[in-house]
């Protein structure tokens, strides 16, 4: 195991998470509850896909096999994607979309706060650019968690149920393996334990104000990073990759 592999592994994981969540949010374009929130989610989708481009390009550079960001996004199969299952979850309803976003944002920010000091300059640069966007994402999703939790009986119930449904998918954001542990030790990656602690502190602070409850789930899903995904993943890729696979190399 060497540093190049550690950078590749981290860049691919960050790139896959942001790509799939960005795609999920992009599905809502034109379907938001009101125009203003529709644009807000689409902005976040664009931020995430933009970040994904930087991460996947970096992965291609350090891999040294001439793979581009598009090769990673459009010409890999389901088993080659390393994203966590959380980001594949469908857009059931507004409360669910926001809860999914809130959980991801809290972890995303805690991860980037460490990556801005990465010993690898390219990682630190991408993190520094992304962190401003993610601070806003968290602000947006936190505001909405509070509005829903502390809103009407119906909005509270929907938000609470969404959090409970998503709870078993949270831990996957801070699972470690041999290579991520190596990356953390080398100062390239992030300390997952610290991310977990900070993300939960962030979430609990907001949820308290929202009068909502969230506990770490005793049972949790893993496998996303190893290419084992939920039944939703195939449909995401089918939609995301169909055009480029039908017309490979086409541009406009």
């Amino acid at each position: 195991m060497n540093k190049q592999q550690a950078i590749f592994d981290l860049a691919l994981w960050m790139g896959d998470n942001t790509l799939i969540l960005g795609h999920r949010l992009s599905e809502l374009c034109g379907h938001g509850p009101i125009l203003e929130q529709d644009i807000a989610l689409t902005n976040i989708a664009l931020d995430l896909v933009g970040q994904s481009r930087m991460w996947l390009s970096l992965a291609g550079e350090v891999e040294g096999k001439d793979r581009t960001e598009d090769d990673f996004a459009y010409y890999r199969g389901e088993r080659d994607f390393t994203n966590v299952k959380l980001v594949e979850m469908p857009n059931h309803h507004w409360g669910y979309v926001i809860a999914r976003q809130f959980i991801y944002d809290a972890h995303h920010l805690a991860i980037l706060e460490q990556l801005v000091d990465s010993s690898d300059q390219a990682i630190a640069d991408i993190a520094a650019k992304a962190i401003k966007e993610v601070q806003y994402h968290l602000r947006f999703s936190s505001e909405w968690m509070i509005r829903m939790g502390d809103g009407t009986a119906v909005s509270h119930e929907k938000a609470q149920t969404s959090l409970e449904d998503l709870a078993p998918y949270i831990k996957s954001l801070t699972l470690t393996d041999e290579i991520s542990t190596f990356a953390a030790a080398e100062g390239i990656g992030f300390d997952a334990g610290r991310v977990e602690q900070e993300a939960w502190a962030t979430m609990q602070k907001v949820l308290e104000e929202a009068t909502l409850k969230l506990e770490p789930s005793e049972y949790y899903h893993k496998g996303g990073k190893q290419g084992l995904h939920t039944e939703h993943m195939g449909f995401i890729l089918a939609e995301m990759q169909s055009v480029v696979r039908a017309m490979p190399g086409n541009t406009w």
Binding site: L35, E36, Q37, I39, A40, N43, E143, R147
Partner: peptide, 12 residues
């Protein structure tokens, strides 16, 4: 919310 919506709608 008005400030956030304005940020998203009018400063992108």
């Amino acid at each position: 919310m008005a400030i956030e919506n304005a940020r998203d709608v009018y400063t992108r």
